[in-house]
């Protein structure tokens, strides 16, 4: 790997990191605007035109608020909790293919930071690690409500990880690779001559299971039991204030962005778009592909918010029933059906 390549990778890392932070920031704004729209209100409209500077005002407020560490809390772990949460949220975006190859001058480079052979499993590992931030923070607060929130988060994540893994297995059977770069490349265009090339058309049930699990893994409503304010005051972040609370809330939005990008890549063709073969300039295709990928990601983020302001929260036993008694059997059935169909087609 030459120096130029390393510099390109570093620049790419910085860009992806900055984009995820900006998108997470404006997701908070979008969330409030969409909530306002769905509830027939106006929403934030004071900071800047249409309230467009609201996220900056919120960020400034978070930074300047008083920082409180409870007397009997475990200081080190109390700080480690939100740090871990935001770190695990950020590292997931490293393996997502943001676009095809881009040529500038004599250099040709990939818009994917790391095309590792086990990309899907890497995402899966990062997701399973994400719960530690919540657990450690909830426990270190030394508060009963926080502890209950942390424990809820742990059991919820473990339960839904199983169904998520099983839904991915069916996808892997059809694609035959674990690399996200290859999976995105396989879904070239929209119609491959015989059938739709996007995976959602061959794996509709698998996508549905993955979507529900993604909601549960990001602790989004209707599965936001760890921070259920009607039962647990604030859940795992009851004791947090200032930017540490901000990190927890921010981590949730980054998680949402990364899981939207994963869903778009795995099931909705990633950077591919219909009629892409009609454009002959490779760079134009790449740039348009990236724009399309972000369009898909924004649609998913909008869907996350739409569901939050539409569907009431589950009860905890209903959540467990859905995970273990509905999603896991459905995912196993999906694997069997996929196997049988693949044998027949072959």
């Amino acid at each position: 790997m030459g120096t130029a390549e390393i510099i390109i990778k570093i620049v790419l890392v910085v860009i992806v990191f900055a984009i995820s932070l900006v998108i997470a920031m404006y997701s908070t704004y979008a969330e409030r605007k969409i909530a306002a729209f769905l509830q027939d209100r106006v929403g934030p409209n004071r900071a800047g035109p249409w309230g467009i500077l609201q996220p900056l005002a919120d960020g400034g407020k978070m930074f300047l608020k008083e920082e409180i560490i409870p007397t009997n809390a475990n200081t080190f772990l109390f700080i480690a909790g939100p740090s871990l949460a935001i770190m695990t949220a950020c590292i997931g975006s490293a393996v997502i293919p943001w676009g095809q190859k881009l040529t500038i001058g004599s250099y040709t480079f990939d818009l994917q930071i790391a095309d590792i052979n086990v990309g899907i499993l890497y995402i899966f590992g990062v997701v399973s690690l994400g719960v530690y931030g919540i657990m450690i923070g909830g426990w270190a607060s030394n508060n009963k409500y926080s502890l209950l929130g942390a424990i809820r988060a742990a059991s919820q994540n473990i339960s839904y990880e199983i169904a998520m893994g099983l839904s991915i297995i069916a996808l892997l059977m059809t694609t035959g690779t674990l690399s996200l770069g290859h999976i995105a490349a396989q879904q070239h265009g929209f119609w491959n001559g015989h059938y739709f090339s996007w995976n959602v058309f061959s794996q509709p049930l698998g996508f549905l299971i993955f979507l529900v699990c993604a909601f549960a893994e990001t602790n989004r409503s209707p599965f936001d039991l760890p921070e259920c304010e009607t039962e647990l005051v604030g859940g795992y972040h009851t004791e947090y204030s200032s930017m540490k609370l901000g990190f927890y809330l921010f981590a949730e939005y980054i998680n949402m962005f990364v899981s939207s990008a994963v869903m778009a890549t795995l099931y909705f063709g990633g950077y591919n778009f219909p009629f892409m073969d009609l454009i002959h300039s490779q760079n134009l295709v790449t740039i348009l592909g990236t724009v399309f990928l972000f369009g898909k990601v924004f649609l998913f983020i909008f869907f996350f918010m739409w569901v939050r302001w539409t569907i009431p929260r589950f009860r905890y036993d209903q959540l467990m029933d859905l995970g273990w008694k509905v999603l896991i059997p459905l995912a196993i059935a999906n694997i069997i059906i996929t196997g049988v169909v693949m044998q027949f087609i072959k």
Binding site: L121, G125, S128, L129, Y132, M135, A154, N157, I158
Partner: peptide, 21 residues
Amino acid sequence: IVNFIVYMGAILVLFLYTLML
């Protein structure tokens, strides 16, 4: 990656869960 997912991501979460309880 399996060591990462299964041991770090699942089994030790359950360990921590039990100890916290």
